[in-house]
Amino acid sequence: MNKKALSLVEITISMAVLILVMLPSFLAFSSGNQGIQMTDYEFRAHNAAIELVEQTISLPFDMIKSGQYDESDIVDGANFADTPAVFHLSFSSEFKPKMLIEDIIKNKKVVFKKVTVTINYPVTKLSKQRKDFSVKVIINNDSV
């Protein structure tokens, strides 16, 4: 009676094939989790941008100083430009804010100010990849 049994090489190859087949399902778990982390960071970046916009537009129009502000200017407790108003930030240092305030002039008068807030944030906790989230608002000069 001549029975052919499986060789060690065959068993090893079949195990490797099985692992390769299983790998996509493991990766699906991993990418699902990564997606949730991305949503978390996007949500926080969105909130950080709204928070900065709201506190800026809550100031009187003439106190909203035009210019470009980066993360070294936008610091919790630091003054906004040369005004007595201070920044209040509740987001962590992983989120890097930038703000651009531009005048919109009509008949030599500033009628609107365009505020653009950009938050640079990490895509996930361990990732070095970063993304930008921007919010733009136009503020009306009530005195014109």
Partner: peptide, 20 residues
């Protein structure tokens, strides 16, 4: 061990997603 690790992370992430 990979399956358990991924499963744990996924379920933690899924729970956080509901809370978020």
């Amino acid at each position: 061990s990979m399956f358990i690790g991924f499963g744990k992370n996924f379920s933690a992430g899924e729970g956080s997603a509901v809370l978020m």
